[in-house]
């Protein structure tokens, strides 16, 4: 597939935004349970603004993918069958929850709600946060399922696809949260850093698993099934167009094998070992902001490469019909 940059930015930006919101809410629950001094409302409010900025950035990027963005509202109608439509509904819903969550914190509105036993000493923000978390995970699933539901794109058609989207989002969100807590001089820096490392390690295992899976993948379609002629030696001689077509532009990444391989190694290095090393250093040198900033920025750049590779690696069966001019 041809990697569309609008979608690369959409998925990486909203992933980080979702992860950051998860980190903020995890921090709120953690301080409550562990009796660590409560963070100020402003801590959560500004954090929510940061998350909203990323989500909005992703949303804007997604519009560049559409031929007719002015009709985008129509894409919320087919939620019964289309994962894309579901994502279109859940993304603004999640943004709304982050907005409410941030606003409540900003104005310090947190009336205690004692009725729920499950959440000891929980306030309204906890309830809003939990709804936020649910929409957040729903959004991860929708995003991943857009790709995983296409069964003949065999590289994507696996539960590992939504799992990777989720773990990458959370890992980059916690990396960003580490930078944020550092800037805010919050005692939660160690908490954020540790979890950023843990989620990055998880993502390493699941992405590694999908790389191995795709390496061994046998494609079900071949030229014999594509044109229905039973022969081992079939060669295309003409594709019916000399200057290429939508089919040749949309479904091939168009880069050399060398470039493709390099992107794989770039993302394998930038997403996993580099941030893990920087964050581990940061755990012992908590005063060095640069370590945390570098960890987040490099991991985010790595994720852009990862997403490029994710698209480029998928071989669409239609390519069988477009092998030679």
């Amino acid at each position: 597939m041809h990697p569309p940059f609008s979608v690369i930015f959409l998925t990486t930006l909203i992933g980080a935004g979702q992860g950051l919101f998860l980190a903020l809410f995890a921090a709120q629950c953690y301080t409550r349970l562990e009796n660590i001094p409560q963070q100020t409302g402003a801590f959560y409010a500004y954090g929510s603004i940061l998350a909203l900025t990323l989500l909005t950035g992703g949303l804007i990027a997604s519009f560049f993918h559409l031929g007719h963005p002015e009709r985008a509202w129509r894409s919320a109608t087919q939620w019964r069958t289309s994962w894309l439509s579901r994502e279109v509904i859940v993304l603004p819903l999640f943004m709304l929850m982050v907005f409410i969550y941030g606003t409540l914190h900003f104005f310090g509105i947190n009336p205690p709600i004692h009725a729920t036993v499950a959440i000891p000493k929980g306030g309204l923000t906890i309830i809003v946060g939990v709804i936020g978390i649910i929409t957040c995970f729903a959004l991860f699933i929708c995003t991943g399922m857009i790709y995983a539901c296409l069964k003949f794109l065999q590289e994507w058609h696996t539960p590992l696809t939504p799992i990777n989207y989720t773990l990458f989002g959370i890992a980059s969100g916690f990396s960003l949260a580490a930078v944020y807590t550092h800037v805010q001089q919050s005692p939660l820096l160690g908490f954020m850093t540790l979890w950023a490392i843990i989620f990055t390690v998880f993502a390493f295992f699941t992405r590694g698993a999908s790389l191995i899976r795709n390496y061994r993948l046998k494609h079900k379609s071949n030229l014999t099934t594509a044109i229905g002629v039973r022969h081992n030696q079939i060669q295309q001689k003409a594709q019916g167009a000399m200057g290429g077509s939508f089919n040749t532009r949309e479904f091939f990444h168009g880069k050399t094998a060398m470039f493709f391989k390099s992107v794989k190694w770039i993302f394998l290095v930038l997403v996993f070992p580099v941030p893990i090393a920087l964050l581990s250093l940061g755990l012992t040198n908590q005063h060095m902001l640069i370590l945390f900033v570098l960890a987040f920025v490099l991991q985010y750049l790595g994720l852009i490469a990862e997403r490029w590779f994710f698209f480029a690696q998928a071989k669409h069966p239609q390519n069988l019909y477009y092998q030679t001019i």
């Binding site: 597939m1 894409s75 296409l150 949309e250 239609q318």
Partner: peptide, 17 residues
């Protein structure tokens, strides 16, 4: 149609342009 192209990904035959 908003031109999102998703249906072309979902056609194994490359019949949509």
């Amino acid at each position: 149609c908003i031109g999102c192209g998703y249906c072309s990904w979902a056609c194994p035959y490359g019949a949509r342009e």
